[in-house]
């Protein structure tokens, strides 16, 4: 059985949604407190959304000094499993330099809370977004590296926050690290009116079971 861990910082608020989403796919799921120092037992680790440490100084800036983020460096170095940062989790991954670039204040200075139309690889999906600091910024040189490595797997169709190249999420395929501003965990249950988030968890399930993505990708249905 796939074993998932959801990291909880003071100020995290999407931990329960993320755990429920994992459990919907039959994954055994635990919360991980931010002072944990070993993550070896998890096949997939989530940095969920919220406002870790109140977003003080900058979103994600203080969380990166917590013991569990130090442990994540080890988890990634060993290539133990998948590391997924959603929203505030993406901000933490960038602050911790586990992903390139940085997320800054939205172009319109507002907190944006809406359904965003996205391109997930070549699929059109809709996922909720909810962030004040989601504008992805990166220098030209790093941007060309991102494109060369096909890391920009998730893009906005109608860029809401001014992100460079409409980037909504990055996937470091060598190190199995994914960071994304949209919230797939909020689009799992039919009651929420949107189940497009399932495609993301199904993709992870297949990767974790070692199935080749290319051959099965087309079999994933978006929504229901």
């Amino acid at each position: 059985m796939i074993k998932a861990g959801v990291i909880v910082f003071p100020g995290t608020n999407c931990d329960i949604d993320t755990k429920r989403a994992c459990e919907f796919f039959g994954w055994e799921t635990n919360f991980i407190w931010h002072d944990e120092t070993s993550l070896d037992k998890y096949d997939v680790v989530f940095l969920p959304g919220g406002f870790s440490y109140g977003d003080y100084i900058r979103a994600g800036r203080l969380a990166r000094f917590s013991p569990v983020v130090m442990a994540l460096n080890d988890y990634v170095a060993k290539k133990r499993g998948f590391l997924i940062g959603i929203c505030n989790g993406f901000q933490i991954l960038c602050e911790a330099k586990l992903l390139p670039g940085i997320l800054s204040v939205n172009d319109n200075t507002q907190f944006i809370c809406e359904e965003a139309d996205l391109l997930f690889e070549d699929k059109e999906i809709t996922l909720p977004i909810a962030h004040g600091e989601g504008r992805f910024i990166v220098d030209e040189k790093t941007l060309s590296e991102i494109k060369a490595k096909k890391m920009n797997f998730l893009k906005y169709k109608n860029n809401p926050n001014g992100s460079i190249e409409d980037i909504a999420g990055l996937w470091d395929r060598e190190n199995n690290i994914i960071g994304m501003m949209p919230h797939p965990e909020r689009a799992i249950f039919a009651e929420t009116g949107n189940t497009d988030g399932r495609v993301f968890f199904e993709m992870l399930s297949m990767s974790l079971r070692g199935e080749a993505l290319a051959s099965t990708w087309q079999s994933i249905k978006c929504g229901t």
């Binding site: 800036r61 203080l62 000094f65 940085i102």
Partner: peptide
């Protein structure tokens, strides 16, 4: 290390 992010 803490108060600013040298990237931006």
């Amino acid at each position: 290390d803490v108060l600013s992010n040298p990237v931006l």
